[in-house]
Design a protein around this nucleic acid. Structure first.
Lengths: 219, 219
DNA sequence: CGAAAAATTGATGGGCGTCAAGTCAAGTGG
DNA sequence: CCACTTGACTTGACGCCCATCAATTTTTCG
């Protein structure tokens, strides 16, 4: 996969200035380059050297590992506005790929300097909390509960409105929830048939009865 | 459950001096109290205020959460020599209990001071790595693979010899691996029948064919 | 030794994986 | 604009793994 590069102002999709040259502005130190990754493009691979932080500008990223027989477990999705790339080793133990057309701001880290630890801790803790929540889902919930919990999690991270955009395929969702795409699909259908959600499009879910979802996800 | 307190020198079981008064020795700042928790005793509970670090002297600890309908998911075991208690909120979101007779050294943390962050990061990262490994197991492995991975993990953390002491019940193992005690028991039996392990006692597992275990756990 | 808890073993059923076919959406070229 | 292709998603049929229920054995501990 090829990768296009373009210079952008920091942060929000609305802030993008594809025409200008943002490097010439006053606040030059917080500026950086945003790279565009098409769906499926690799951001980093298992075995590569660590040392870069990534911030998602738009789109989404999957971080996963493969077992020897090809089974894939997605450990985390990273959505617009979120930061990732911290791993406690010299080399990456995971793969990171864009799940759809995704813009990513990359920042090379000073290799383990003094100030760094303070920035790192919140990042590590966020990852830890997410992983722990994820463990509860994988360990003890059935397929419907998993999908409900997933939709709610996405919704909260997108701002908590009654509509969720799914920036990833069913396969990605399945590999995140420890299910198959068929089971994920059936779960969506069941939620739809029960009038709990509505699928305005393939990748857009509307919460018709949000409390129902919450009750299910609570397990 | 009641809790007995006794003063001890730091770290290893062999270091214990239940008779003397270790506080009067020269290296007084690293001294602290070791509390003895009988099997099942609560160390902290969901909702309690954070602010203490714990180091396991001997025995083991389970950290878990309950869902509304009573299902329990154990997120982590902490064995002799390991440290725990870090949670990124003001109050605990989990329960911590001794899985067997357990000695724990407790150290109250300066509430978020400067130096603290540096000590915290390795702890957070260890937790993160463990949680991620655990996610792979819960997401994609069958019961035999889970038990194999669990035994190997315990073995490594105990020094990597061909014998593992299980400082927890089958129920604890089941709730850690997202299985039932029956399935855990059957998995042990199957591994035993295949000549891969031997159960020298209820809570002591000998690796007869370690490579077999590793092949299974690799998934 | 006797009671209670823990662990094992067996029988049965359900949920989810697997295999397979069908539907839908998006893109391409004529 | 429409036939065709391709990939993603959905739906159905079937089987297996593991949960559930139940009985028995083993271990622990008073």
């Amino acid at each position: 996969m090829t990768v296009a590069e373009l210079s952008l102002l920091p942060h929000r999709p609305a802030d993008r200035h594809p025409g200008g040259d943002p490097r010439s502005t006053a606040s030059s130190e917080i500026l950086s380059t945003v790279t565009l990754f098409p769906a499926g493009a690799e951001i980093y691979a298992e075995g590569e050297k660590c040392g870069t932080f990534y911030q998602v500008e738009f789109g989404a990223v999957r971080v996963y590992r493969l077992s020897v027989d090809g089974r894939r477990q997605i450990l985390a999705f990273h959505l617009a506005g979120e930061t990732f790339g911290l791993e406690p080793f010299q080399t990456h133990h995971f793969f990171a790929e864009a799940t759809c057309a995704t813009g990513i701001r990359m920042r090379r880290t000073a290799p383990m300097q003094d100030r760094a630890a303070e920035d790192l801790l919140p990042m590590a803790l966020t990852g830890l909390v997410r992983a722990q929540e994820h463990l509860l889902v994988l360990g003890r919930q059935n397929s419907l509960e998993r999908v409900a919990a997933f939709l709610l999690d996405l919704s909260e991270r997108q701002g908590g409105l009654g509509e969720v955009e799914l920036p990833m395929s069913r396969i990605d969702i399945a590999d995140y929830l420890g299910l198959t795409i068929e089971t994920v699909s059936r779960s969506f259908s069941k939620l739809r048939q029960k009038g709990i959600i509505r699928l305005s499009s393939m990748r857009s879910v509307e919460f018709v009865r949000p409390q129902c979802l919450r009750d299910m996800a609570a397990g």
